[in-house]
């Protein structure tokens, strides 16, 4: 069975959930080989978690300089291993960094690549959702080694036993390209709420929330439902909530089990970021708000009375 290279996304000695999803997808195409690029000692910390999700091999590409450079250490490692192992595919998480890595690997290996894939079949045909979920496209790579970036959260991670046999790999530093130096990092501090793009429940507030202070009504409902908080562009532009929580065309694309829109009119740009959610509930004062056109359940009313009542009722049911 062919190998499938999976680039491991890790932070602070822990594997990101999206990597476990990639390992699950990789098993459909062949035998997963995890590729760990990082500072010395990284693989030792995460090998067990990779083994628990079916990694047959772990290529260990560790160096002191790996964290001082941006993107290129991962590109160098994947391009070298792609040439050496002729894998059935190379899988990378469709994060900002993952997509940059994948595009460069595709160029360097003379291969085609696919962006933001939601699903992969055993024959390599991938499903993508484009224009904010308005179209479903099935495509495949026809030249070279398929390089595929998979949207975090799109595929459910499944546990499986793997040998996770480690193999150290020396990657010569490409001299032709000039380096970019990483001079500092300020990682996002994970809050108590789930990450927006991974959450199964998202509660978002829009212009109707009216102020930064009143966003607490959105947060309370999110906490009652164990979900993440989102915001429409109008709310972010008005300074009600930080930009990293923006849902929509120019923010994050989410597709949770439940999306609750509070005081969001539902402009096409917002819908592009959330209309693939499984169930949509909307509360808005304006009965004409376009959000009601796509909501499974809508309440025409004041979010400041409806949302707190909802939070209370949810808390009651959860005891």
């Amino acid at each position: 069975m062919s190998e499938v290279l999976v680039l491991v996304d890790h932070v602070d000695g822990a594997v990101r959930k999206s990597t476990l999803e990639l390992l699950t997808a990789a098993r459909r195409l062949g035998e997963p080989s995890a590729v760990v690029v990082g500072a010395p000692g990284t693989s030792a910390k995460i090998r067990e978690s990779l083994a628990g999700h079916g990694a047959a091999k772990v290529y260990v590409v560790e160096s002191d300089t790996a964290t001082d450079l941006l993107v290129t250490p991962q590109v160098d490692a994947l391009a070298l291993l792609a040439e050496r192992t002729s894998p059935a595919a190379v899988l990378v998480s469709a994060t900002a960094e993952g997509k940059e890595i994948a595009g460069r690997v595709a160029l360097r290996t003379g291969s085609g690549w696919l962006v933001d894939v939601d699903d992969i079949a055993a024959d390599g045909v991938a499903t993508q959702s484009v224009f904010g979920g308005a179209y479903v496209v099935k495509s495949k790579v026809t030249t070279g080694t398929p390089v595929i970036t998979v949207r975090p959260g799109a595929i459910d991670a499944e546990a499986a036993e793997g040998a996770a046999t480690e193999e150290a790999v020396e990657v010569p530093v490409a001299e032709a390209s000039k380096p970019v130096r990483v001079t500092g990092r300020e990682p996002v501090v994970a809050g108590d709420r789930p990450e927006l793009s991974e959450a199964s429940v998202v509660v978002s507030g829009g212009r109707g929330v009216g102020s930064a202070d009143s966003f607490s009504v959105v947060e309370e409902l999110a906490d009652a439902l164990g979900g993440a908080v989102g915001a429409s562009r109008a709310a972010v532009d008005s300074g009600y909530y930080p930009g990293q929580f923006q849902v929509g065309q120019t923010g994050k694309t989410v597709s949770p089990q439940l999306y609750v829109a509070l005081g969001i009119s539902g402009a096409i740009q917002h819908r592009a970021g959330m209309q693939t959610s499984k169930t949509i509930v909307a509360v808005n004062k304006d009965p004409e708000a376009p959000i009601f056109e796509i909501a499974d359940f809508g309440v025409v009313g004041d979010l400041f009375t409806v949302a707190p009542q909802l939070s209370q009722e949810v808390a009651k049911r959860r005891g």
Partner: peptide
């Protein structure tokens, strides 16, 4: 280097149930 096998517009999401808040919206 890639080819699209098929593409189709997603069936538009229909509107579901909508109610006026009579004090029991939540």
């Amino acid at each position: 280097f890639t080819s699209v096998v098929e593409s189709a517009p997603k069936p538009p999401r229909g509107a579901g149930e909508r109610v006026e808040d009579q004090g029991d919206g939540g």
